[in-house]
């Protein structure tokens, strides 16, 4: 029970941060012709910001099913990495149904907070962690859908930065503490910019709603940092061996 409460407390800031973002989603969905109920159901069943925005754009354009599946797949592929990472943070004997429930709410922010946990992530903790963000995400969508038209396009646009600034607030403090984390942040940001601006490379960000560019930059960034650490480890082992002899 304590773990559940602790999870709720940790998750509540995410809930607040989700409201402006999902509000924007609700606004846009209604503008595209979805009903508030449909917009809310999409939020409840997807819990995915970028994927949802891209999805409704495709549906509005009457895209074929296969295009919708591929785009959703590519934009959300990062959740695969997050889910893999979380599989290493839960008890190996945790039953499938609990894992299946947790999987539903592996969002960028919920995952970020869960992975900052120093110890194993328990089911009650994750349950508490995901509870208020789900409520925030769905109720924000509904509010935005119903309140559509009350806000100027300028204000609506500015609300779009909330999501990214939450990401900044999540990654900067650990990056200030650890140089290795800072390196991972800088390399991935640099690669992501390359995929957007360098001619030839930027073809990658034009397909799949930018999903490929993000996933490639993230995998390369993490792989480079892990490899640097590996080299250091080997060098250390070699020095230790020499001093032993």
């Amino acid at each position: 029970m304590n773990e559940f409460i602790r999870g709720i407390k940790r998750g509540f800031p995410i809930c607040l941060g989700y409201i402006p973002v999902s509000f924007t989603f609700g606004l846009i969905a209604v503008k595209m012709g979805f009903t508030p109920a449909q917009a809310t159901i999409i939020s409840l069943t997807n819990m995915a910001s970028a994927g949802q925005f891209a999805g409704i754009r495709l549906i509005e354009g009457g895209a074929p099913y296969i295009e919708l599946i591929i785009t959703t797949f590519v934009i959300n592929l990062r959740y695969f990495l997050m889910s893999l990472s979380l599989s290493q943070k839960v008890a190996p004997d945790m039953p499938f149904y609990k894992r299946a429930v947790m999987a539903y709410c592996i969002t960028d922010e919920v995952f970020a907070l869960a992975s900052m946990e120093p110890d194993e992530v328990s089911f009650p903790f994750f349950g508490g962690l995901m509870l208020t963000p789900i409520l925030g995400w769905t109720s924000g969508t509904l509010l935005g859908a119903v309140a559509s038209g009350l806000l100027s396009p300028m204000v609506q646009g500015c609300m779009g930065i909330a999501l990214y600034c939450m990401f900044i607030a999540i990654i900067i403090p650990p990056a200030c503490k650890s140089r290795k984390v800072a390196l991972a942040v800088v390399i991935s940001a640099f690669l992501s910019c390359m995929f957007k601006y360098v001619p030839g490379l930027n073809e990658l960000s034009k397909v799949g709603g930018g999903g490929w560019a993000i996933i490639t930059a993230a995998i390369l960034g993490a792989a480079i940092c892990a490899s640097i650490k590996e080299v250091k480890r080997r060098r250390k082992a070699a020095t230790a061996e020499r001093s032993d002899a």
């Binding site: 846009i28 999501l163 992501s192 993490a222």
Partner: peptide, 29 residues
């Protein structure tokens, strides 16, 4: 190596998502 890779994933994913897209994120609807 895989343990390290997984350790860096949250930071690299969030960073790649944020930059440079954050600079475009206040565009009016």
């Amino acid at each position: 190596w895989i343990q390290d890779f997984i350790y860096y994933i949250p930071f690299s994913v969030l960073s790649a998502m944020t930059f440079p897209d954050v600079l475009y994120s206040t565009t009016a609807t």
